[in-house]
Design a protein around this nucleic acid. Structure first.
Length: 242
DNA sequence: GCGACAG
DNA sequence: ATCTTGTCGC
């Protein structure tokens, strides 16, 4: 496979799926990371109209205190239509723009979507992790693929998510009595570490603080932009590859 | 062939 | 994702 693949951009559903097939084996599932001092949450909000604008937000938290360290936003146009399994192509450019605005590189990325728990084992968390080279985990709010038994009712219990004979993630109960979230490896982490971090990031609510904070920020950025009379049309999406 | 399908 | 009020439960 060519190094060009990393930054090439698909013009069709077929190309996008083929690109995922080529990139999937570059994902590293490994122990750790051992030290995680800062964790970044990433989320995107969509304009009320149609496909006019998307606001991507990154919020970096101190992993120990869960206090906000810094944040950044980027408003662009959606870079791809929404197609189940190709979700990443829609949000990736805006998310990367937001990440580039951070002054310090976070130790771990927590994405709003699946990682390996994906049709082709290459969800948003894998793609984002691979492009940035950073450890990444995926946290999905709803089911995408795999079979699983219901985890115990108490906070912290989990079960494996199995797809085509492979453990691709876990269903994790982050709060007693709430609906589980779906955790999966994005890049350069192992499932146990990913699960541990997601649980630690969720002391009070079903969703991890990283997701809640980035969700808040992305919506605020979008609202502000839509209510601003002087707001020019969203700039074109991020630069594409060859 | 039919159903399912992150945000 | 987004459109949306009240309402059940702790």
């Amino acid at each position: 496979m060519d190094i060009e693949d990393l930054h090439s951009w698909p013009d069709s559903v077929e190309e996008a799926e083929a690109l995922q097939e080529r990139l999937r084996d570059r994902v590293r599932e490994e122990p750790g990371p051992a030290v995680v001092r800062t964790v970044a949450g990433l989320d995107v909000a969509y304009g009320s109209h149609s496909d006019e604008a998307v606001a991507a937000a990154v919020v970096v938290l101190d992993a120990a205190t869960l206090r906000v360290v810094e944040s950044a936003v980027a408003v662009e146009r959606p870079s791809f239509p929404y197609v189940p399994g190709l979700f990443a192509f829609r949000e990736l450019p805006a998310l990367l723009s937001a990440l580039r605005k951070l002054r310090a590189t976070p130790d771990l990325l927590v994405c709003d979507g699946h990682g390996r728990a994906h049709f082709r084992r290459f969800g948003l968390a894998c793609h984002l992790g691979l492009l940035t080279g950073l450890p990444a985990v995926g946290v999905g709010k709803t089911f995408l693929v795999g079979e699983h038994v219901e985890p115990g009712r108490e906070r912290g219990s989990f079960t494996d998510l199995v797809h085509e004979g492979e453990v691709v993630g876990r269903t994790l109960r982050t709060q007693t009595g709430v609906k589980p979230v779906y955790v999966s490896v994005g890049h350069r982490v192992d499932l146990d570490t990913a699960t541990r971090h997601v649980l630690a990031l969720s002391p009070s609510y079903r969703l991890p603080e990283t997701t809640r904070q980035s969700d808040r920020l992305s919506r605020a950025a979008l609202r502000e932009r839509e209510s601003d009379p002087a707001s020019a049309p969203p700039p074109a999406a991020a630069p594409r590859g060859r």
